[in-house]
Design a protein around this nucleic acid. Structure first.
Lengths: 242, 242
DNA sequence: GCACCACTAATAGTGATATCAATCTTTCGG
DNA sequence: CCGAAAGATTGATATCACTATTAGTGGTGC
């Protein structure tokens, strides 16, 4: 999940990416390769490779004589999990989380229904086990393990749906959950209602009840929505690796 | 929308990207930079930049001594519009379209409802105009203009929803519509029912009726789903620029 | 005098090449 | 069985020639 920092251009990206994604540079701001070389103390090759990546995410365009220009936000590839992580690290965190949650509200119930219909029986059964483990670690207050299980739970459902695009969102959902935890937007011990709902989803999927699974999943994400409205942001306890 | 082919590395990508995305190389297959240099007759610089882009899309990983390895498909950033276009050009076109349509079925009705609630009044009114134009050009059999209007219609709704993530899907939906048209998966003249539904969505959004807008939009995408089940694939009439 | 067009020059990015460093894998020897 | 060395491949730097784009500059015609 964490980005590979072995290469120099990735280390440049780890600084430049969040800066652009966090709106520190207005759309239209231009960099030059030479400027980047100097600012980061890297060779031209490295600077260029970093720019190529930003370009493929549509954060910037590079043109001769003009330099490297920051694109308006609406042109960005905002489904890139890397970009999501960068944005969750910045100012617009809460706005971003609310957007992402609206997306989850649209997709995850549909995925749960599909999973109940088409998912592999063995996998479906395993889901209930994960939900039980979530309840146990949740009540014990082991947030780290809980996060892992939570990610596994939602990932399994998105993958069980049999739809590649839904499965592709697993990475996005994982970023959201990690973000919510590391920025303390998660209650210290998960709400019992949430734990109950996860179990309900798992059982409905296991028992092949699409409508029940869909409704329960919808409850999960709408519960998160209301929580996000109330909660106040805070500093990360452990800066997520970009 | 079309990719910029002015740079060499983009021309390399235009060949290599569709080849990998189209499963011509199994997961685990490795390239070497030297091999790419020779195959494409480009310098190391260019080959590396192309690899960097593929790497940022998570299609490959590059490691010393090992080379450039193709990742399993489930790790790809399948929401990248570039990648979607590459995949729509390949064998798995129909599977991909069905997945994308299931995604649309989850998202677009929700977006339509949000637009009816929160969208700017002027923009909402303009939607009905676009729907009328669609009906006119559709009946006239002007598929090219129809496609443009269709894209504009869906893009407007996704943007009016006020949710950045939904707006980000506009690019994805556009790729789908372009793909369906250029691979002749679109009827020669749009079905009257579809035209009627687009108008219904536009009017419901204009009149601030979320539930009606949502239901009508749901009808649009489910109609497409059933159409996709029956239709048989065919060759592109004009290869879409990658 | 003003508008417009063509030419010119400066400025980035683009592409190629050479060279060395770092790293991972495999193999071979103890 | 373990560890060290060798070999292969990417990673990084430096440098040069090329090209596209823009801004200026000057001339021409109205």
């Amino acid at each position: 999940m964490a980005t590979d920092h072995r290469t120099l251009h990735n280390r440049v990206l780890a600084v430049l990416g969040p800066a652009i994604a966090g709106d520190e540079y207005a759309a239209g701001h231009t960099f030059t390769l030479q400027g980047l070389e100097q600012d980061f103390g890297v060779s031209r090759t490295v600077a260029r490779e970093a720019v190529r990546v930003l370009e493929s995410m549509r954060l910037v365009v590079s043109r001769p004589r003009t330099g490297i220009r920051v694109r308006p936000r609406r042109e960005w590839n905002i489904f890139d999990p890397q970009l999501i992580r960068w944005r969750l690290a910045g100012e617009g965190r809460m706005v971003q989380l609310r957007s992402l949650n609206e997306l989850r509200a649209a997709v995850e119930p549909a995925a749960a229904a599909l999973s109940a219909r088409h998912g592999d029986a063995e996998e479906r059964a395993r889901l209930a086990v994960v939900a039980e483990q979530m309840a146990a670690t949740g009540r014990a207050g082991d947030l780290e393990t809980f996060l892992e299980l939570d990610i596994a739970f939602h990932r399994s459902i998105l993958e069980l749906s049999g739809n590649e695009m839904f499965a592709g969102l697993a990475q996005v959902v994982a970023e959201v959950l990690v973000g919510r935890t590391s920025y303390h937007l998660m209650p210290l011990t998960p709400r019992p209602e949430a734990l109950r709902l996860h179990l309900a989803v798992a059982q409905a999927i296991r028992d092949g009840l699409p409508d029940v699974a869909e409704a329960a999943m919808r409850s999960i994400v709408t519960e998160v929505s209301t929580a996000l409205e109330d909660d106040t942001p805070s500093e990360p306890d452990d800066a997520p690796s970009s």
